[in-house]
Amino acid sequence: MNLQLRPALVSFIALSAITGLAYPFVITGFSKVLFPRKAAGSLILADGKVIGSELIGQSFTSPKDFWGRPSATVDANGKPLPYNGANSGGSNQAPSNPDLKKAVEERIAALRAADPGATGPVPVDLVTTSASGLDPHISPAAAAYQVHRVAKARGLDEAKVRDLVATHTEGPQFGLLGDAHVNVLKLNRDLDRIK
């Protein structure tokens, strides 16, 4: 029987070189020329330092900032480390898991403790963990829910903050793909600029 040794080895090595080296290197080269900023991670720089990526959410906990979604990411030892950009992941809690309900209730309590006036139902995305643990967005409803707290903590006019949220609100892409969203990091950075 012909063992096909030579065709097997040669084709495997050659196709590996084409698809595993040439292809990614060529795409890297083209990306660098065509979309240099995006290929490098859409990084936000200030004074020559990297502040973050506009695509990757960050952990905000001060009442003065808009809070992003809860994040279930952990560090290398499995300890909670929200928005760990080197170890993405979600909670994988089932809808029937009592721990999920408990966690949601605790998050609602934290939001209300920071803003006792807000007693209405909380937008669901603000109290559930995202899939990546790095979700940079919240829904416009989740932003609106926090306007009162942020405005008060910063001593700003609520209308001004609401306007800023509106300018940062993006609808579904092309009007029908995905859902409306607000980029939390960009919103908070613009908030810092208001004097």
Binding site: R69, G90, S91, N92, S130, S132, I138, S139, A180, H181
Partner: peptide
């Protein structure tokens, strides 16, 4: 729980645990 899961113009809503807003 006091959570708003309804779809409105302001939010997609639904079962958002383990999903991304965009």
């Amino acid at each position: 729980v006091s959570v708003d899961q309804a779809a409105t113009l302001q939010q997609g809503g639904g079962n958002m645990e383990g999903k991304e807003v965009r």
